[in-house]
């Protein structure tokens, strides 16, 4: 990656910009995930799409599932970016870290 860096290009700033873009995408996906239950509520009944009937329960479960999958996937992406920016150590989800930052 170092070879591709041009003069005046700050990789740290570029990653920060990508972090912001990614967060915007995350928010946009949240709105998309909310459309299912919203549509079901607005129509006050089940919606049929491609032969698959989405009633209110399915829409809610779909929304919850999509949100969880999105958050897991996005976490991985953000972690990669964070590691590139700040060299954060890789942690498994239930790893017990050492003592945290000490306040001055």
């Amino acid at each position: 990656m170092a070879r591709t860096i041009r003069i005046g290009f700050n990789p740290r700033t570029a990653w920060r910009t990508r972090t912001r873009l990614l967060t915007l995408i995350a928010v946009a996906l949240l709105l998309v995930a909310g459309i299912g239950p919203l549509a079901s509520v607005v129509t006050r009944g089940p919606i049929e799409a491609a032969g698959f009937v989405v009633d209110d329960v399915r829409a809610a479960l779909l929304c919850l599932g999509v949100l969880v999958l999105l958050s897991v996937r996005l976490c991985r992406t953000f972690e990669n970016i964070d590691r590139l920016i700040a060299d954060e150590p890789d942690e498994s989800p239930f790893a017990v870290p050492g003592r945290g930052d000490v306040e001055s």
Binding site: P37, S40, V41, L64, L70
Partner: peptide
């Protein structure tokens, strides 16, 4: 609540998602 209740559930989950990605870090 019927269907509206599921929308409230989705909002609660969405709020947590929003907090996690937009504010928490």
């Amino acid at each position: 609540w019927g269907a509206a209740g599921f929308l409230i559930l989705a909002s609660l989950a969405g709020g947590l998602y929003l907090a996690g990605f937009v504010f928490a870090p």
